[in-house]
């Protein structure tokens, strides 16, 4: 049963991922990406990662709502009124990504993966919480500072005033 669900989610995730670059509206592309993320969140729940799976689902719903606004702001082909190609160097991109796919898949199926070490804890969420509040605490500290730095620098970049309050232009 889980295997069937996994393959359905996997095919849907890749299918929606392809749709992101196939649909001609950037707003639709945003929702295709959201669907792809929801499928990936589903596969994580299949791996008993309930907390991280739900976290991905919730975060991506919020993120794609914000993204949809930006997509509409910067839409190249609003409502399909100006049919145009949004691509450049299509052949090169296809060749490179195809080669990367072949190399990665070949690696996945030929590498001799190590044996599974240990068993999953009864409650992976609890194990994660104890890790980030214990041995992995520096990771959480760095992530926290990075989020703060991003908030400050994103606002500084996006506001409509440079140094000296726009006097330099």
């Amino acid at each position: 049963m889980r295997t069937v669900v996994f393959w359905v989610l996997a095919l849907a995730a890749v299918g929606f991922g392809v749709a992101v670059f196939r649909v001609d509206s950037m707003a639709r592309a945003t929702f295709a990406l959201l669907a792809s993320f929801l499928c990936v969140g589903g596969t994580m729940v299949l791996l008993d990662l309930h907390y991280l799976g739900v976290l991905v689902v919730l975060m991506m719903i919020m993120e794609m709502m914000v993204m949809a606004v930006f997509m509409i702001m910067y839409m190249m082909n609003p409502a399909g009124l100006m049919p145009m190609s949004m691509l450049h160097n299509r052949r090169g991109a296809l060749i490179i990504s195809g080669a990367v796919l072949v190399a990665l898949v070949a690696g996945v199926w030929t590498v001799d993966w190590p044996e599974r070490a240990g068993r999953p804890p009864g409650d992976p969420t609890r194990a994660l919480g104890e890790a980030v509040m214990g041995a992995q605490m520096p990771v959480m500290i760095v992530v926290g500072v990075a989020i703060l730095a991003t908030m400050v620098s994103a606002v500084v970049l996006a506001t409509d005033r440079g140094r000296y309050d726009g006097g330099d232009r």
Binding site: A10, A13, V14, G17, V18, V20, F21, S36, V40, M76, S85, M86, L87, H88, N89, R90, G92, A93, L94, I96, S97, G98, V100, L101, L104, V105, V108
Partner: peptide
């Protein structure tokens, strides 16, 4: 790998 390749295609080909 499939998701990565699709994303790479998009990152390289989109204007």
């Amino acid at each position: 790998a499939a998701l990565f390749a699709v994303g790479l295609y998009g990152a390289l080909s989109q204007q």
